[in-house]
């Protein structure tokens, strides 16, 4: 699939070279290919339209840098726009200033919340912090066991209270964390659908009680068109601070990154890149731009200019 797209791209850009300016006509094919490529990468249909319009606007009439051919110039603009849309070149950090600071993970079922909670705890522990994990998933069978097992592996305590009432567990966890002098508290919550009102209400209640500094939605990188809707609903109800995009060790093109970023305006803060507890990285937008476009080689060529 990848080579195919690259071939199409080089075809599309052939008719651009040797001309001084980018015009509506000579980017028509290229625009079409970009659109297709983004859709194949699972970028949301509506987001693609907006994105293409803004890139076209920027590119039209643009003089072509001397060192580049017009097709490369177009890709350069495209890539920069893409990185811009994805949140710029510098990864966004988690901001924790209170003591203890609270981080809450939310998201759909199976997206990777529990695993990411353990990864975050490990990350903070390695920075010399004293994290506490809170098991507030009282629904999924063995969810608490899962977090306890992971906590044991990284030697981070797990608070699970009465194991029945998520609101109560979080309240008690606060007292516990203060008493035991934990400086970072990471709350794992049950997976839920954005249209499940009672379950969303539970998150709102937990949020209002604990006032986390970071509410992160955990999103599976293989997600398709519906990502826009789920991210929007979670953000509308909880005012997210950002996202963790998981399973990036797979081979999905990851168009979801653009979709959720575009619809919420919130940054992707971290990338999950494996099942192991160390597989959590800062999110570098420029690394994923090429992957989404499916034209890594072409992009790295321009990088050298």
């Amino acid at each position: 699939m990848f080579e195919n797209i690259q071939k199409k791209f080089s075809l599309a850009f052939k008719n651009l070279s040797g001309k001084g300016k980018i015009s509506e006509k000579n980017i028509k094919d290229a625009v079409k290919e970009v659109k297709l490529s983004l859709l194949e990468a699972d970028v949301n249909y509506k987001v693609v339209k907006n994105f293409i319009d803004s890139v076209k606007e920027k590119a039209l009439g643009e003089k072509v840098l001397e060192s580049l051919t017009p097709d490369q110039e177009f890709i350069r603009i495209l890539k920069n726009e893409l990185i811009e849309l994805m949140g710029g070149k510098e990864p966004e950090k988690l901001v924790i200033s209170r003591n203890p600071g609270y981080i809450m993970l939310v998201g759909l079922q199976g997206s990777g919340k529990t695993t990411s909670a353990a990864k975050l705890a490990k990350m903070y522990k390695e920075k010399g912090k004293k994290p506490l994990l809170v098991a507030a998933d009282t629904y999924r069978p063995a969810a608490i066991d899962q977090l306890i097992t992971l906590g044991t592996q990284i030697d981070v305590p797990v608070f699970s209270g009465d194991k029945v009432n998520a609101r109560k567990i979080v309240k008690e966890a606060k007292n516990y964390a203060e008493k035991m002098l934990h400086d970072i508290v990471i709350i794992d919550t049950a997976g839920r659908l954005h249209i499940d009102d009672d379950m969303m209400k539970e998150l709102e209640d937990i949020k209002n009680y604990i006032k986390p500094e970071e509410i992160l939605m955990v999103v599976d990188s293989m997600m398709g068109q519906d990502a826009v809707r789920t991210a929007k609903d979670f953000n509308d109800r909880l005012e997210l601070n950002g996202f963790i995009v998981t399973k990036l060790d797979g081979d999905s093109r990851g168009g979801v990154i653009i979709s959720i970023r575009h619809v919420t305006g919130k940054p992707i803060k971290l990338a999950g890149t494996g099942e192991k507890i160390v597989a959590l990285e800062p999110f570098y937008a420029d690394r994923y731009a090429g992957r989404i476009l499916g034209m890594g080689d072409v992009l790295s060529l321009i990088e050298k200019v």
Binding site: G224, Q225, G250, G255
Partner: peptide
């Protein structure tokens, strides 16, 4: 997963 995109 029913939410999966083209990677499916």
């Amino acid at each position: 997963d029913g939410t999966t995109g083209q990677n499916g």
